[in-house]
Write a protein that binds this DNA or RNA. Structure first.
Lengths: 230, 230
DNA sequence: GCATTGTCCAGACACTACGTCTCGTCTAAG
DNA sequence: CTTAGACGAGACGTAGTGTCTGGACAATGC
């Protein structure tokens, strides 16, 4: 569709993306001139094959971005990754867990929750980054897809909360609470409710496919956080 | 293509729910003493069978609430409704359109957008009703499921916007715009962005399964609408 | 060094739902 | 009475599910 498995500037699964295989190719184990890369081993023996793991993660991610969750199947992931279906089922109970693995990794790197200096400016910056992640970043599609799938399947909802939403919200709560204690902000609602009020509109816009209205994030921050200094 | 998939006389889940068939029962054509109800006709002949249409709508709705969208299949709907699969495919292109039919009907009845008296109080009342609908009403599950499915499937997204989100947002925009012109409210954002900011948190909480924080809706209204009179 | 252990690929398997199709039945319209 | 169209029933090929072989392979441990 777009040639190179999408995401141009996308460093993808981060350090790993560089060695990504092309979409059409026969999997991660690209044949090489043999002479140039003798270090390429077909098997990793007794232990889990790291390159296979990465190939699955990347394949799932790419396929989701390219064709959507609806046509994302384990068989397609296996084909794309050049991996046996059994290899996937050995390590992941479902495709949702695969996506969860990539999402956790990606969002920890792209939109970390500020842990120091709980200033109003940092919160604003965090929300802008989050908005960008969820509306423009291909990796944001994974988040939207998982929010969606959590509506359809109870197991997904459980896992999604336990592995992603819960931990992240805990960090957000801590950030906000410390900012309140520091007198940086003074929301009328509690920390959780305030986060819902801030994040909700961003996610809602992303879910409905409408582009984020200009100034939405800033107005949200200004009106709901009522910063003492602003 | 929807030909006739919309229902004109459909009184919705409301009036009909009473006479609903039991879950385990063998479909809409409940056997009756025969003598008591001679008006029950097995076929409606040349024309579309209204009772079959309603049975499908109810079956889809019930199954969604009971087992979730994930295990909602056309075959299950047909079984539950006591209807042939082909009868469903004759009138609806997909299960999504069935749900869309029920959602449009239900939300028009339960949470109509106030068309008169664009007061701040009416807007607040509308949002409270919407929040209740989406968090407590079984019919609200249909809305959440369709928002979710729109992430997975492009056709669903298109149809969902065209048939539900678009028209409703138009009415909401009109409500807000008139309230602004009347000096009832004075949001810092435009009408659409303001609606996103108000509705977003409610939907987000519903999607994440967290109960609506106390006072969220009121605080949203107070802080974002900045009513001239409040 | 050699058997053990566990991963990997390949593909078969029964199962389920899909959406299409054909059949025969039935009823209201003409 | 004829006929058109909806309906129930169910067969059909396709596709993905998750499980379960088999055989090849490499790291580990004795």
């Amino acid at each position: 569709m777009d040639g190179m498995s999408g995401r141009s500037g996308w460093t993808g699964r981060l350090g790993i993306a560089a060695g990504r295989s092309a979409p059409g190719a026969g999997g991660y184990r690209a044949r090489m001139p043999a002479a140039s890369s003798p270090s390429r081993r077909p098997h990793s023996g007794n232990r889990r094959d790291e390159s296979a793991r990465l190939a699955v993660l990347h394949a799932a991610d790419d396929l989701l971005v390219e064709h959507g969750f609806g046509s994302l199947t384990v068989e397609a992931i296996a084909r794309r990754a050049g991996v046996a279906k059994q290899t996937i089922y050995r390590w992941w109970p479902s495709k949702v867990e695969i996506l969860l693995d990539t999402l956790i990794e990606d969002s920890d790197k792209r939109i970390p929750v500020p842990a120091e200096k709980p200033t109003a400016a940092n919160i604003r910056r965090y929300l802008r980054g989050f908005a960008r992640f969820v509306t423009r970043d291909p990796a944001g599609k994974v988040l939207l897809a998982l929010i969606a799938e959590a509506q359809h399947d109870a197991d997904t909802a459980t896992s999604f909360h336990k592995r992603y939403l819960g931990p992240r919200r805990a960090r957000e709560r801590e950030m906000l609470t410390r900012a309140i204690e520091a007198g940086e902000v003074a929301p009328r609602l509690g920390a959780d409710a305030t986060m819902d009020a801030l994040v909700g509109p961003i996610v809602y816009c992303a879910l409905t496919g409408s582009s984020l209205p200009r100034g939405l994030v800033d107005t949200l921050v200004d009106d709901l956080l009522r910063p003492a200094t602003d």
